[in-house]
Design a protein around this nucleic acid. Structure first.
Lengths: 159, 159
DNA sequence: GCTCGCACTGAGCAGAATGCCCAGCGAATA
DNA sequence: TATTCGCTGGGCATTCTGCTCAGTGCGAGC
């Protein structure tokens, strides 16, 4: 669960240059290959590293528009709404939240006009009372994990 | 930019089993190894596949609390706020948006109590007028790309 | 109708990495 | 003190990679 500095260096190195392989990592980090391999195995069985799936850019796929929609759900309809949203390919992720909305989902679309189609499909479901959409203009900080890993590696336990 | 079915199958296969390698992929897909290799190179130089970084689970790192914060920014302070937020490790991503807020950011924290510390640090900056935070309770649809890739592969061009 | 360009195929090759094994060692633990 | 655990450094066979090549089928352009 807690990671130490070596774990942190492994993850950061892997995040920066994912293709280098275990042997090259051991060279760069100055440790034995078996150590890196054991650490990696542990990190993966821990669940710290979920996997190494390809990071696909929706914009390059033809979906340059990103938006976040806050949804208000009719009481008791949560499970149905989740199942509905899971069937929409343009819904990239979905969270249930506290606060003024009940759910927050990330959407993509081929254009602003196409976004209307996506939203219609999202809210075209009985359990959804209202949707408030915010279109993303810029993304100054793309999804990142390195700073957090570095912090976690420096402070293995704290609360 | 547009991907065909073979591209789609490559990405989906890679997303499901990231460790299989080019040779095994060519076997599963029933095409020559060189073809898979060429397609992968093209997808990467296209930017469709950004990379193969490790997918790290913040919860396993000791940050089980996720939240989304909507920020309102004082006019003209945007660039400073971005720079400020980029220095906070718990800020995993940041978007500027249309709508009632000006920015939307994803935060993680070690606990609900720790979230207060993170929010204090986030809003402890002059350019931020107000912050509305929604704590994530459940994540019925984790960040995914496969359905979108499949759709994009079936409909190479459309708007 | 013909030729060119392009993508795919199937094969081969040297080099490198992987997965796996082992014995030894030092530190922390019981 | 004895044991356990993680790291080291080495070796091994197997596998994959990166690269090259000639041949082939297909569509576009002339």
């Amino acid at each position: 669960m807690a990671i130490d500095r070596l774990d942190g260096r492994i993850i950061v190195l892997l995040a920066r240059e994912p293709r280098i392989g275990v042997l090259e990592m051991s060279r760069r980090l100055g440790v034995a290959r078996g150590t890196v391999q054991a650490r990696l195995d542990r990190l993966q069985s821990n669940g710290v590293i979920r996997g190494f799936g390809p990071q696909v850019d929706p914009a390059a796929l033809g979906y340059p528009v990103t938006a976040f929609a806050t949804l208000q759900i009719r009481q008791g309809q949560g499970p149905d709404v989740r199942a509905h949203l899971a069937t929409v390919p343009e819904v990239l992720e979905l969270h249930t939240t506290t606060g003024s909305g009940d759910m927050l989902c990330r959407l993509v679309a081929r254009s602003n006009a196409d976004l209307q189609r996506v939203i219609d499909r999202v809210v075209g479901f009985d359990g959804i009372v209202r949707a408030a959409t915010a279109i993303v203009m810029e993304n100054p900080v793309p999804l990142r994990i390195i700073p957090l890993v570095e912090q976690a590696a420096e402070e293995p336990e704290r609360t």
